[in-house]
Design a protein around this nucleic acid. Structure first.
Lengths: 178, 178
DNA sequence: CGATCGGTTGATATGAATCAACGTGCGTGG
DNA sequence: CCACGCACGTTGATTCATATCAACCGATCG
């Protein structure tokens, strides 16, 4: 379980293309799948300094069978992971670059907000534009253009690893969240 | 659980865009998530005539806690669903139309082959080109062009709800599976 | 001080979308 | 039994979103 920092789960293709499959924040399991099978199947990549905790696979399985609440909590975690994957599929399949980026920002800041106190909509945001590109199936050049546009429209501020949302309403409209 | 036929799990966007999130074949659970929560969250759509079986949510949960093998089998199902979702994310994020279509064909025929006897690499394949487009984030027009190209190259035959793979080797190369 | 990394910007290329017309098979109602 | 409409696919012309290539900038770091 990740206790501190940011981690990506990634797939690296033969020819250098990279796809980030999910972003882990403090409190997330590295992989619910890893609890059952030895192989991680994809690799992980730390974006920041990181702290994490280990569990014994068999202990956890035993505890889940013994304790129904833990079992349900774990099922809930799996369901959330799945929902996030579905959302990403929809983004990649059917939304354009502006929508994708607006949604990614809102999705991540939402998750950060669940974990830490946020003041004045200013979030720690260590993703590079290149990372956003590799989540969203775009190039970093294009991400830069869209972000610049958002910035010029006064929607966000984004520098030095921090992101501030100036107009959440308009950003949500751009992402078709309304 | 689906017993016979083909079903899509889909997301329908406000403006008519559709994204198919997964394709269910005989033996698949409609949603591993549905076992824990009431809401299906997305909708399902039958592509063919269909037969299915129902389980009582609570019976199944009880059985899983009581029977470790069932528990593991279920975990395995979840893991497979997850892997398929990851693959789709990689396709949508980082592969072009030819790769996507070649991979979809190989993925589906592989799954069909696990379930039925296949003669002369000829598979039942009720997907319309429009459905493939909605899985792969393309338009049906573009799918048509690529399929026509595959056909002219002698890679596949595809008509009347059947698909035959003439040159699996070359198709796999196109999909970067080799 | 040079090297490297992340980001910006412009010019150009390209894959896929869009628009449009047409064909063909099929089911259905008259 | 025919005529019509509809679903699905094909094909061509054109447009558009995003990629690619390239130059450059500022910050950071050894």
């Amino acid at each position: 379980m990740l206790c501190y920092g940011w981690v990506f789960r990634i797939a690296q293709l033969g020819d250098g293309r990279r796809q980030i499959l999910s972003v882990l924040l403090a409190g997330d399991l590295f992989s619910s799948r890893m609890i059952f099978s030895e192989s991680a199947e994809y690799s992980f990549q730390a974006l920041t300094h990181v702290r994490f905790a280990r569990f014994d696979r068999n202990d956890l399985r035993a505890a889940m069978v013994a304790n129904l609440e833990l079992f349900d909590a774990f099922a809930q975690v799996c369901a959330n992971e799945r929902r996030a994957a579905d959302e990403l599929i929809i983004d990649l399949g059917r939304r354009n670059a502006e929508e994708r980026i607006a949604r990614l920002i809102l999705h991540l800041t939402g998750r950060i907000g669940e974990r830490t106190i946020v003041r004045e909509s200013c979030y720690p945001f260590p993703l590079r534009q290149n990372d956003m590109a590799d989540i969203l199936g775009l190039t970093s050049v294009h991400v830069s253009r869209v972000i610049t546009k958002f910035r010029k429209a006064g929607l966000i501020e984004y520098s030095g690893g921090n992101l501030r949302i100036m107009r959440p309403q308009e950003l949500a409209e751009l992402g078709r969240l309304i």
